[in-house]
């Protein structure tokens, strides 16, 4: 890194309707993590266990939006992050969870909570503590404004590293030469 920022950039991450695979891939940047922690510090993230997101420079969202809690988290990130990034296929287009979209929600829930083999007298949970599912799983750009997108299932460590170093150095990030893939 040629020019270090004057202060450490604050970065928050979250996984919505995703599998944490993108977070795992983030860790796959391996020894670059050492470089990274020299220039950034983490806010809310599964890596820190901070629960509330504060003002940040960069927010990274994995996963699509499948329920009301996802909407709240996503909005909170948008409010607090100057730059918000969609990380991975699910955040970009709904991905695997969105493949439930052609099944009516009632059918989905009944299948899981009432008709699954082994379930007796099952009920669709209605505890007010629980977030309600949306009728369809949506990519995050349909809910808040997103500044950058990193596709991939998951995006590779090198792709994430390239993207972040571009961004931190002030270059418009680009994924080329095999770093861009959708699967």
């Amino acid at each position: 890194m040629s020019t270090l920022p004057a202060r450490k950039l604050r970065v928050a991450t979250a996984s919505l309707a995703g599998c944490f695979g993108c977070h795992m891939s983030f860790l796959d940047i391996d020894e670059h993590l050492f470089e990274l922690v020299d220039i950034i510090e983490f806010d809310r993230s599964p890596l820190t266990d901070i629960k509330e997101v504060g003002p940040c420079d960069i927010g990274i969202i994995e996963g699509g939006v499948c329920n009301s809690e996802n909407v709240h988290v996503l909005r909170e990130f948008r409010r607090n992050c100057k730059t918000l990034i969609a990380l991975g296929a699910c955040a970009v287009n709904g991905g695997l969870p969105a493949q439930r979209n052609h099944i009516p929600l009632a059918e989905c829930l009944r299948e899981v909570y009432q008709f699954r083999p082994g379930v007796e007298n099952g009920q669709i949970p209605n505890d007010p503590e629980l977030p309600l599912p949306l009728d369809k799983v949506r990519p995050i750009h349909e809910v808040v404004r997103i500044d950058y997108f990193i596709p991939g299932c998951p995006p590779s460590g090198p792709a994430i590293w390239k993207f972040l170093t571009d961004l931190i150095a002030g270059r418009t990030p680009r994924l080329t030469g095999g770093l861009l893939h959708y699967d």
Partner: peptide, 9 residues
């Protein structure tokens, strides 16, 4: 990098 628009699903 993004489908940009609303999905028809």
């Amino acid at each position: 990098l993004t489908p940009r628009f609303r999905h028809f699903f």
